[in-house]
Design a protein around this nucleic acid. Sequence first.
DNA 1: AACTGAACCAACCGCCCCGTT
DNA 2: CAACGGGGCGGTTGGTTCAGT
Length: 318
Amino acid sequence: MGRAPCCDKANVKKGPWSPEEDERLKSYIEKHGTGGNWIALPQKIGLKRCGKSCRLRWLNYLRPNIKHGGFSDEEDSIICSLYIAIGSRWSIIAAHLPGRTDNDIKNHWNTKLKTRLLGKQRKNQQNRRSCNPKQAMMKKKGDSQSGSATNEANNGWLNQPAISTIPFHFTDYASNDHYSQGSISKLHMKLSDVRFPCCGNGSHQAQVAPSLKIPQAIYDETPVNSTMAYSSHENIVINDGSPLRNVGPEFFEQGFNFTSNNSLMKLEGFDFFYGMSSLINESVNVSESFIWSEMNSFTLPVQPMASSYEGTVRIGEH
DNA sequence: AACTGAACCAACCGCCCCGTT
DNA sequence: CAACGGGGCGGTTGGTTCAGT
């Protein structure tokens, strides 16, 4: 037995909002607020809309200071790194991007970033690399107000230098099991269906999900400013000697390995970076299997948010 | 000019969480 | 403690636009 619908579906209008509806909803909320009850709101203002629909319209479109389109390179990077860190928790990702809505970010990810990050249809990308009329069109329409005025044919995110810095935010949710391991598992499951262009028949394929796990240690309460180094495959320690939790030998048995370079870690097993790396390393060919040692450095400086954590994970560095 | 497919995005659907009763 | 209901969220759909043929 399903739950009762939140509104009388037969008597609510669906589809695009008219300017009149927008104005009515906007002016009411600006004067009176939502009243804490979206379900009752449409009746109060005489809109034949579902309360949830009103909420969505307000949050995604009418709310002040909403930005649409024109994702900057920095925003793209934040979205990508957060997606890698926490998966498709769009509302959390949106919280890191002022003026952006989860829906907007989700659409942006699904239509642009995912394709790019996961290397989908790399062939298409290569075709478009020299000339991308669609993107040029979108830019004309104001879709891209991004700072990357250089190389219009390429997307700015791809134009990052070989040593690419992506801001990586860890907030309190990252130390919460619900948000870390759980979401990563979810991400993991999703990615298990993804074929990456660089590992189709490469030796790394066996390491791709479902064995992929991200070490809980990364999400644990690593003291601010501490750096991480490994001591052996049995333990990972912070440089102050405190053992990190939940990273045992089984982690390494699943195809993961850490090697040390003073305070830097080479993190193998992050196969899902292959798509990204293939985009960063322009020389990688679709048919080639990917070799970490040939990959340019990829640096993820962990920036503390609020009272958060900081560390550095450098991938592919020797 | 007409058709087709891709890209984009607004909006809906339905599940889950959590506060209230 | 269980049931209920609203809010929040992620997934998905459907309409629109435009480029390519």
